[in-house]
């Protein structure tokens, strides 16, 4: 059979393959070196446990311990988005893969989606183990009165979060070493602003409004209100409002990512920065 005889797949199919193709090495890589199972399950819980013990030392409401466990689990998704999606284009540029992505007849978003799905494999293990171990060790109890609502909020948070990751990836594509530092900078300040370990309402109304641009802020706040209804007075907005806001945020971030990726790629081509390494 000649090369010309092969039927060219549709653009949609090519992108689906790209998603699988980029997710594949992450999942397979995880099975080749299993050290991460220990590093990503037991060790992250230790940092989270330290925050639990602050609340224990201060005799805080037990719901706060649940807040910390949920926040600790969510941290995994933020870190994954930051280091294994946003900063990944920078890393791919450094190791010479970015130009290969650029010449492939596929959407850049398909590559990023593949990264997200592949990365979810590690991240979900980490998040679920943090949740499970946290619940078992610290005896956290919660009320799951509206499971579908919690799942919907979690799903919307993830869509918005990885939409943000795609948007960041477009910026990071042109970055040199500042990409690494930018990701580093977006850790502690974001943990603070998004109320990762305390209710975001404590930061005051306007700071919380600003922090709502980070999808995790609204997602965490809504899930906390639904899982610990007795501590709902610590909620920033009602879960319904936060769900709608997350849906809007998801759409806006995905559209912004699409345009930004296109713009930054063109800019990178014009300025010759897509293949610059070790800057």
């Amino acid at each position: 059979m000649m090369f010309e005889d092969f039927k060219r797949p549709s653009y949609f199919m090519m992108n689906i393959r790209a998603v699988f193709g980029r997710a594949y090495p992450r999942v397979i890589g995880g099975t080749r070196e299993l050290s991460w199972v220990f590093f990503d399950t037991i060790l992250p819980l230790l940092g989270v446990a330290a925050y639990v013990y602050i609340y224990k030392a201060l005799n805080a409401d037990p719901a706060f311990i649940g807040f910390v466990i949920l926040g600790g689990a969510t941290t995994a998704f933020w870190l994954n988005m930051l280091w294994f999606m946003a900063a990944q284009f920078y890393w791919e540029k450094e190791i010479g893969n970015l130009e290969l992505y650029m010449i492939a007849p596929i959407s850049r978003m398909a590559i990023l989606l593949g990264m997200a799905i592949g990365g979810m494999f590690f991240t979900s293990v980490r998040a679920l183990s943090t949740l499970a171990l946290g619940i078992i060790i610290f005896g956290v109890t919660f009320t799951l009165s509206s499971p579908l609502h919690v799942i919907a909020i979690f799903f919307l948070t993830m869509v918005a979060l990885y939409g943000m990751g795609m948007l960041f990836a477009s910026l990071y594509m042109l970055y040199g070493r500042e990409a690494w530092h930018m990701s580093s900078l977006l850790q502690e300040p974001v943990y603070l602003l998004s109320g990762m370990y305390f209710p975001v309402k404590a930061l005051g109304y306007w700071v919380a409004v600003g922090a709502s641009l980070i999808p995790i802020t609204l997602g965490l706040d809504a899930m906390r209100q639904l899982l610990w209804p007795k501590a709902a007075s610590w909620g920033f907005l009602s879960p319904n409002v936060e769900t709608i806001a997350l849906a809007f945020l998801s759409i806006i971030l995905l559209i912004a990512a699409r345009y930004s990726l296109r713009y930054m790629e063109n800019l990178g081509k014009r300025e010759g920065r897509l293949t610059l390494k070790w800057q």
């Binding site: 805080a60 706060f64 502690e188 943990y191 305390f198 404590a202 930061l203």
Partner: peptide, 9 residues
């Protein structure tokens, strides 16, 4: 981050 956790309680 720690200060706010303390203040909340």
């Amino acid at each position: 981050l720690i200060v706010v956790m303390y203040i909340v309680v």
